[in-house]
Design a protein around this nucleic acid. Structure first.
Length: 177
DNA sequence: AAAGTGATCATG
DNA sequence: ATGATCACTTTG
């Protein structure tokens, strides 16, 4: 069991999104740590990705995406849901991976609701945080890649990219090594 | 199928 | 200051 460090977040989002599948999302509160295996992710890849929040450049909201990988990017979606993203890549490359499902929760909004993750986690450094981090226990699930959800506004080429990754199983016994 | 919800961003 | 937009969820 190993906490992910800055080096683990240094590749691009499209490469890391499937790699995050099977990693363990750890949320500590009131002395107890919830550990949920990540089952679904999506990659958002920089200013040239017309589905990415950074498509209009660096703003107050997106500036966290321009930091080095390993920070959390948390934003409010549709006025209701806080969505958790993992910033990836080197400084000044605004890429991030949306966590769409983990453990028993499918849906990015349900997950953050269950874990009490809100705007207070935006900018959290997951490589050192005492309340939110990722661990690797070696499990690598099989997965399928599909187009991303909810990006109808993006250019056709970006809509079609297979940047959504879903594990077939969150149980080590049913997956590969 | 469609509403509910409010931060964010562009415009004035 | 105002209006359009939106990486979702729930209800019918």
């Amino acid at each position: 069991m190993r906490r992910l460090g800055a080096g683990d977040y240094s590749a691009g989002a499209a490469e890391l999104a499937p790699w995050f599948l099977g990693k363990i999302l750890c949320r500590e509160r009131e002395g107890a740590a919830a550990r949920l295996r990540i089952t679904e992710t999506e990659a958002y890849c920089g200013e040239t990705d017309s589905a990415c929040h950074a498509r209009f450049g660096k703003t107050e909201r997106t500036k966290i995406m321009y930091r080095r990988g390993g920070f959390a990017y948390v934003y409010l979606c549709y006025g209701i849901h806080w969505l958790l993203n993992l910033v990836t890549g080197p400084e000044e490359f605004p890429e991030a991976v949306l966590i769409r499902g983990a453990g028993m929760w499918d849906g990015p909004g349900k997950l953050t609701r269950a874990l009490n993750i809100d705007r207070g986690f935006n900018g959290e450094d997951l490589t050192v945080s005492k309340r939110l981090w990722l661990e690797d226990d070696g499990f690598r699930p099989l997965y399928q890649a599909t187009p991303r959800i909810g990006v109808a506004y993006a250019a056709p080429a970006d809509r079609e990219r297979l940047w959504r990754f879903k594990a077939y199983s969150d149980s080590p016994s049913a997956g590969s090594t």
